[in-house]
């Protein structure tokens, strides 16, 4: 059995591997591979920590976490996946949207332990290698952002919106994207991008 590092975090990883690329597989507090992942999952640790196995963007990570840690904090602070943003931290702005088993969820309102056993997709995992997801490409082509802070959440929400079948018309897109705030007000272009991408997504 492996001995997880309690409290492993983004910064400790970064202090020892500051030049490593910020990708999931190499990220903080990740112990062992998929093969060993299940053995201690869910076990309570000393100091109130629990072992949590998270599958993010196709990679399995074992983390030792306080059970109250939210998914967004697990992603950002423990896995170094900073593409997911914190806007309001209580489920009102949509900036932290990720996919859990293909369904859009607010990662600030989801406990990391509740994501165990699910496939999590973040903005870092949406592209196929260097090939942008059609939604990402459409956002670029339509200038569907300004400051970019809400963009990862917008894109993940948009992909789900199309897959849910809620992108039938402009009005429907606007309604089903209304949980993702954009303070820069790039809504016109966001709707245009979703309309463009939905055909390329085969919806």
């Amino acid at each position: 059995m492996t001995n997880p590092t309690p409290g492993a975090s983004r910064r400790e990883f970064l202090s020892t591997a500051a030049s490593a690329p910020l990708v999931a597989g190499a990220a903080a507090g990740v112990l062992g591979g998929e093969a060993r992942a299940q053995t201690t999952t869910g076990a309570a640790m000393a100091g109130g920590q629990v072992l949590v196995t998270l599958k993010v963007n196709g990679q399995t990570h074992r983390l030792s976490l306080d059970p109250r840690v939210t998914l967004v904090d697990a992603l950002r602070e423990h896995l170094g996946l900073t593409g997911t943003k914190v806007g309001c931290n209580h489920g009102q702005c949509g900036a932290c949207t990720v996919h859990k088993d293909g369904v859009r969820v607010l990662s600030c309102l989801t406990l990391a332990v509740a994501a165990e056993g699910s496939e999590i997709t973040t903005i870092e995992g949406l592209a196929d290698g260097d090939e942008l997801h059609p939604m990402q490409a459409a956002f670029v082509q339509h200038d569907a952002y300004q400051c970019g802070y809400c963009t990862p959440g917008q894109i993940l929400s948009a992909v789900a919106c199309v897959k849910e079948g809620h992108a039938g018309s402009d009005a429907e897109i606007r309604e089903y994207m209304s949980g993702n705030l954009c303070r820069c007000g790039a809504y016109v272009n966001i709707v245009a991008a979703i309309n463009d991408a939905k055909t390329k997504m085969g919806a």
């Binding site: 900073t82 593409g83 949406l126 990402q136 490409a137 670029v140 952002y145 970019g148 963009t151």
Partner: peptide
């Protein structure tokens, strides 16, 4: 396009 366009959409 915005200079950070691709970075915005990939996180």
């Amino acid at each position: 396009i915005h200079d950070s366009a691709t970075k915005h959409v990939t996180g």
